[in-house]
Design a protein around this nucleic acid. Structure first.
Lengths: 328, 328
DNA sequence: CTGAAAGCGCTTACAG
DNA sequence: CTGAAAGCGCTTACAG
């Protein structure tokens, strides 16, 4: 089914069909109707490939690569990115990779094959120490990383300074006379490590006692709970918990309760990302808002600039805020 | 930057360049190297449009239209769909629409312009009473609806029978000697209404007293809480709450606690979708699992069949299961 | 207002 | 092993 068949059916040239469909020049009403009828009867759908090949407009495709859309934080990022891209007339090609490094690399090379104009990598997990694949991608199209930094030409980062943010959380707790912190995290990504470093460096300076617990992402909730409860038991004077993600903080709150302690009186809890979970938790969860929405807005602004041949900042930080609720 | 420039730089014909890049015929090592070097130096990226135009393979694009990726249920659907599509070599073009009906229609027409082979509509909100736009879309490409039914040719549905599922929840509660139900919901989508009907018809038959509360989606948690608390106060003998979504159930649990009652002893609570939220809630939440993952798997199987010219079921139901936890 | 024809960037018989 | 050329389905000057 192509434009020629429509033209034949309507008894006109393909040029005329094209004009009618694209409303790109005056065509007599009578002819117009014949063409439109033919289009309808045949169920003709213009071939977008051929079209963009000719007009060289491309589909204005942006490739978004994300490890896991079911992660609430990434889902918010994806939603914001798609919304901002759409605003500017870009389409979104989505690839989810899971946490397997092979899949991540494959996804990047896969995207490169699709006539995309740019790649957005969602999550600092893509900011590896040896970013060969990103280097390759960036040699072909501009690459934008959400909340991660990788030092490669033609690669742009908008991020929240998670080191500072986590440091801020620690200070808030120690200002509140808390002295014995449990830190729970689940990811060794760039941003995950920044948070961890922020925690360690700040608690060390202030002479806070610390215990650090790493959980496996996607392990059963019961398992995480049991690990946290053990950690709390091994260090009964724990008076504050900081988690790298709200869901870990929410689970931790439940563990605190199960240990017969009260939040925040006995144990304060701070989460991270300020997700819906923080509002729904019982007690509601104080959480660090690292402004993922703003990160995405700025990223797409930069993308738009770069694709228009303008300059854009290589790295750009957004601010953060500790949203206080019942848990601290 | 096109194949001709690469050919010039390498001192060969464009045919040879194409062969090297696609490994589609023997080329001498020496020539191969010259071509690959040229490709590298120029940062040449084949034009996927031109390629697919020629091979007529198309990008094997599937358009997924979704109202809101930050909704946990839809995020799970999207993740499952993308995974299944990728398995079979399809790319995913994503459009998010929000809840505005205009935007939904625009998104559908927008997709049709992109050389997609099929459209997947995520969420029964797309199953409107007057599905003109779906009819139009389905006249051009097969349309697949996740958990919604619309009676239009070339449209396929895989769904969970939410009427039956909700009815099952009610029966479980009334078998447990509960007599006074509060139902909380937030959506008038096809599936939302099925759930509501299931609730009403079953409670009516069993002589259960009922109160029905509709919340606005995306309204602040505090507002939802206050509405629920009012509802509980207006009907102090409420001994069971059923919500159309886990997050509403989680909030309801908090309200029950704030009203000085215990879950499940005084008030049992059942959520819907069996999301992570159900596991994290305190107490953990009994929830109806409507098998969204299976729905998506079957949908992509059907899509694959239809695109290969095989038959696929027009409508297909998956089973459901009530996952018991602490709240009932 | 309409059509014939060139050309978008590729792939792939067809020759050699 | 390699190249010249046709053709994928469109759009758009150029003529008329």
């Amino acid at each position: 089914m192509n434009i020629l068949e429509v033209a034949k059916k309507a008894g006109v040239s393909i040029a005329t069909v094209s004009r009618v469909i694209n409303k790109t020049a005056k065509v007599s009403e009578e002819t117009q109707k014949r063409v439109l009828d033919a289009v309808r009867e045949l169920g003709y759908l213009p071939n977008a490939m051929a079209k963009s090949l000719k007009t060289n407009s491309s589909l204005k495709l942006t490739g978004i690569i994300c490890t896991d859309v079911t992660d609430f934080y990434y889902a918010r990022a994806l939603a914001a990115l798609e919304r901002e891209l759409r605003k500017r007339g870009f389409e979104t090609l989505l690839a989810c990779t899971g946490n397997d490094i092979e899949m991540r690399h494959k996804a990047i090379y896969g995207m490169l094959d699709k006539s995309i104009g740019a790649i957005i990598l969602v999550g600092s997990i893509f900011a590896e120490k040896n970013p060969e694949h990103i280097k390759h991608a960036a040699s072909l199209v501009p690459v934008f990383i959400i909340n991660g930094i990788v030092n490669v030409p033609n690669t742009y980062s908008v991020y929240c300074d998670d080191f500072k943010a986590m440091s801020f959380c620690c200070k808030a707790l120690s200002d509140g006379r808390r002295k014995n912190f449990l830190y729970i995290y689940d990811s060794d990504s760039y941003s995950g490590l920044q948070k961890l470093k922020g925690f360690m460096s700040t608690t060390e300076k202030s002479g806070i006692k610390t215990l650090i617990l790493k959980c496996e992402k996607h392990s059963p909730v019961a398992e995480i709970e049991s690990d946290i409860i053990k950690a709390l038991q091994s260090n009964p004077s724990t008076d504050a918990v900081i988690a790298s993600e709200d869901y870990l903080a929410a689970i931790a709150q439940n563990c605190v309760a199960k240990s017969g302690k009260r939040t925040p009186d006995d144990v304060a809890v701070i989460g991270y990302n300020n997700s819906l979970l923080a509002e729904i938790s019982n007690p509601t969860l104080t959480s660090l808002d690292n402004n993922i929405d703003k990160i995405c807005v700025k990223t797409v602004e930069n993308l738009n600039r770069v694709l228009n041949g303008e300059k854009a900042p290589i790295t750009e930080a957004v601010d953060f805020e500790l949203i206080r609720r019942e848990s601290f």
